Simulated scan of single mutants.
Amino acid sequence: MGISSKAGMTGRARALVAMLLIASVAACAPIYRNHGYVPSQEELDEISVGDSRATVDEVIGAPTTGGMMGEGDYYYVRSRVKRLGMLEPKEIDRQVVAISFDSNDGVQNIERFGLERGRVIALNRRVTSSSVEDKTFFRQLMGNLVNFNPSQFLGSSE
């Protein structure tokens, strides 16, 4: 009776160690979570610069995030977060599709941005020409100061 009792305990101990080992390995497996929605490239290809806001709503749908003023522009955002054990979750992928509209609610720009090494990069864009394209705020400000004519400000004519 003593021998079979020891064998039974050893089997239980082995089962307990195996369960603890499996639980610890499972706890170290990464968990991925996806948040948000970004339309596919095929869906974006159905929209052209100049199409109406209603066309965008019909083809892609209105986003949950919009511009701050009035009807505003459309922003579709998707992110992927990786959590590994007790470590802090880390965002490993983010994509943003920005569709901006002109004053007549026509599509003006369609841009897709991504996240690479913590920096936002433009993946692709369909942009109409603009005088402020690819200029920083500081460059625009300095350009306006250079074009400043004091005689216009003072009301004198030449």
Rank of each mutant, 00 (worst) to 15 (best):
residue 127 V to H: 03
residue 120 V to T: 15
residue 113 F to L: 15
residue 109 N to T: 02
residue 110 I to Y: 01
residue 122 A to Y: 08
residue 129 S to A: 14
residue 105 D to K: 05
residue 116 E to F: 12
residue 133 E to V: 07
residue 131 S to Q: 11
residue 114 G to F: 05
residue 121 I to H: 07
residue 118 G to K: 05
residue 131 S to H: 10
residue 133 E to L: 13
residue 132 V to G: 07
residue 128 T to Q: 03
residue 115 L to C: 08
residue 114 G to M: 06
residue 114 G to Y: 03
residue 109 N to K: 01
residue 110 I to K: 00
residue 127 V to Y: 04
residue 107 V to S: 01
residue 129 S to W: 10
residue 135 K to A: 11
residue 109 N to R: 01
residue 124 N to H: 07
residue 122 A to C: 14
residue 108 Q to M: 04
residue 104 N to G: 04
residue 107 V to K: 00
residue 109 N to M: 02
residue 128 T to G: 05
residue 129 S to N: 12
residue 121 I to K: 12
residue 112 R to N: 13
residue 114 G to K: 01
residue 107 V to F: 00
residue 120 V to Q: 14
residue 125 R to E: 09
residue 113 F to T: 13
residue 126 R to I: 03
residue 121 I to N: 10
residue 112 R to C: 15
residue 128 T to E: 02
residue 132 V to S: 08
residue 120 V to G: 10
residue 111 E to H: 08
residue 120 V to C: 13
residue 104 N to P: 00
residue 113 F to N: 14
residue 114 G to R: 03
residue 117 R to K: 14
residue 103 S to A: 06
residue 105 D to N: 08
residue 115 L to E: 09
residue 131 S to M: 11
residue 125 R to I: 04
residue 125 R to L: 06
residue 119 R to H: 15
residue 133 E to R: 13
residue 110 I to L: 05
residue 112 R to M: 14
residue 135 K to E: 10
residue 127 V to E: 05
residue 129 S to P: 10
residue 119 R to C: 15
residue 122 A to D: 10
residue 119 R to M: 14
residue 119 R to Q: 15
residue 109 N to I: 00
residue 103 S to H: 03
residue 127 V to Q: 05
residue 117 R to S: 14
residue 113 F to W: 14
residue 105 D to Q: 07
residue 106 G to H: 04
residue 104 N to M: 04
residue 120 V to P: 06
residue 115 L to H: 09
residue 129 S to M: 09
residue 122 A to N: 13
residue 115 L to P: 01
residue 134 D to K: 09
residue 113 F to S: 15
residue 126 R to Y: 04
residue 117 R to F: 12
residue 124 N to V: 06
residue 131 S to G: 11
residue 116 E to G: 11
residue 124 N to F: 11
residue 135 K to M: 12
residue 121 I to Y: 08
residue 115 L to M: 14
residue 135 K to Q: 12
residue 130 S to I: 00
residue 114 G to N: 05
residue 123 L to P: 03
residue 107 V to W: 00
residue 126 R to F: 04
residue 114 G to S: 07
residue 123 L to D: 06
residue 111 E to N: 11
residue 133 E to F: 11
residue 133 E to T: 07
residue 105 D to G: 05
residue 116 E to N: 13
residue 132 V to F: 08
residue 127 V to I: 08
residue 116 E to W: 10
residue 130 S to D: 01
residue 109 N to S: 02
residue 132 V to N: 06
residue 126 R to G: 04
residue 105 D to R: 06
residue 130 S to K: 01
residue 109 N to E: 03
residue 133 E to H: 12
residue 118 G to F: 04
residue 123 L to Q: 07
residue 135 K to L: 09
residue 119 R to V: 15
residue 103 S to L: 02
residue 130 S to M: 01
residue 136 T to L: 08
residue 118 G to D: 02
residue 118 G to E: 02
residue 136 T to H: 11
